[in-house]
Amino acid sequence: MTEWITIPIDMRILRGALELERTAHGVLPHRLPAAARRQFPDESLARTEAQPSGVRLSFRTRATAVELDVLPTKRAYQGGPPQPDGLYDLVVDGRPAGQGSVPGGNLTTIDMATQAAVTRPGEPGTLRFSGLAAEVKDVRIWLPQVEVTELIALRTDAPVEPVPDEGRRVWLHHGSSISHGSTAAGPTATWPALAAARGGVELINLGFGGNALLDPFTARAIRDTPADLISLKIGINIANTDSMRLRTFAPAVHGFLDTVREGHPGTPLLVVSPILCPIQEDTPGPVVPDLQAPKLLFRAIGDPAEAARGRLTLNVIRETLARITAQRATDDPNLHYLDGRALYGEADYAELPLPDELHPAPAGHQRIGERFAELVFEDEHGPFGALRTESSP
């Protein structure tokens, strides 16, 4: 009979979250702090930031078995097919070692047209991994990237201790649903998680599906979070929500960067423009589901002619971001720019098309993660490369 030890779940063994909220059941990881959450304009962002993309339990132990009690909140779309259960990825000493899911839990049904949601309460469940080697090892349990997960109890059959930092750099990344990993195969298969593994860094993923909108509270959260490397993927949500015009977009980018720099004046900072998305390259938003299509497809419904009057397309956004970063880099040598089409461009679209015309398939996440690692981490002169960061002030 297994003799279980109950392990306190706190920030000593939780990576990738900015804050833990006490709940009636346990604790809920948040990727934005309470001060930011008080300023949310709607429930969409509240749901999104509580989905623990990049959040993982991390500890060192001789345990051969681990149990985790959780209360998941699954999502479904009104009129759409059921969504699969979220996946938990087990990684031992840096290598994949298992995968599981927890059935049941709460169910939130979302109206895609209005984003209104109704939640039906459910019961907690238990995730179990067993048969682990009885030797000292570093264990990480990555939480489902698109499934809100209340953590109730962690049990092991041997004591645990936090994994020491051992000099690993912390990379904080902010972006949209693609960075969030809404269509990735699992929590370690989002492109930021793949790039972080290759880059040998600790990831904080502030990718928020539909909500990379240059919000000031997000900039303040980044400003106040310790990080050695920061990247900001800007533009796609602003285009597909049609939320800004060129007149407001450019100052908003400057303001976001100014705020980040208040807390990170010399940190390597990379601005990344959108990957290729043909429906929005030269057509402004908003982007809406194509209700006549036999499967989920998105289309942009703006008038291309209005780009001349300040409505934003992806090409306009890229030109603006390149200009802003070049201008600022004269006084900020640790500010860099990467055209997102270097991560996923026309040739990639031909080989690995966007299934819904907006989000990459799992193979697309793999491609983007590999490219980011090659261009940003592994090129010694790249924005986060060894020679670049060692010479940074």
Rank of each mutant, 00 (worst) to 15 (best):
P251L: 06
T313A: 10
L203Y: 01
L276Y: 05
I324P: 03
A326D: 11
E319D: 07
V316E: 04
R318F: 05
T259N: 08
A307M: 09
E262N: 10
P268S: 13
L314Q: 14
R245Y: 02
K233H: 06
A212I: 02
T325S: 02
N315I: 03
E202G: 00
G255P: 04
G255M: 10
A252C: 07
R220I: 10
D242S: 11
C277P: 01
I234N: 14
P226M: 07
L206Q: 14
R245P: 00
I230Q: 06
T283Q: 04
V260C: 15
T248G: 04
V316Y: 02
R323D: 04
R311K: 09
V272Y: 09
I275S: 07
L338M: 08
A307D: 08
L232G: 08
R318H: 12
T225F: 11
A342R: 12
S231T: 10
V287C: 07
F249R: 06
Q327C: 12
P226K: 01
K295Y: 10
I324S: 02
L257D: 08
T248V: 02
T218V: 15
N334Q: 12
I234A: 14
D258K: 00
R341T: 15
V272K: 11
A252R: 05
R341Y: 13
A227C: 14
F298N: 00
P284G: 10
T248P: 04
T241I: 05
V288P: 03
F217Y: 14
E262R: 12
E202S: 01
A212P: 08
D215M: 15
L270E: 11
E306D: 15
G207C: 09
N205H: 04
V287K: 00
I317W: 01
L338V: 08
A252E: 05
H336Q: 11
L312G: 03
V201T: 12
T325C: 07
P286E: 02
L229R: 06
R247C: 04
L232S: 13
R309T: 05
A219L: 11
L229A: 08
P284R: 09
E202K: 00
D332N: 09
D282E: 13
K295E: 14
R318V: 13
A342W: 06
R328C: 08
I230T: 06
T225A: 13
E319F: 01
G209F: 09
P289S: 07
L338N: 06
G285A: 15
T320G: 01
V260D: 15
L206F: 06
N240I: 05
Q292N: 14
P265G: 12
L270I: 09
D215R: 15
L297N: 03
V316L: 09
T248I: 02
D339Q: 03
V260M: 14
G340E: 00
G263P: 13
S231K: 03
N240S: 11
L229T: 05
G285M: 15
D242H: 11
D228C: 12
L276H: 06
H264D: 13
A322L: 04
A329C: 10
R309V: 01
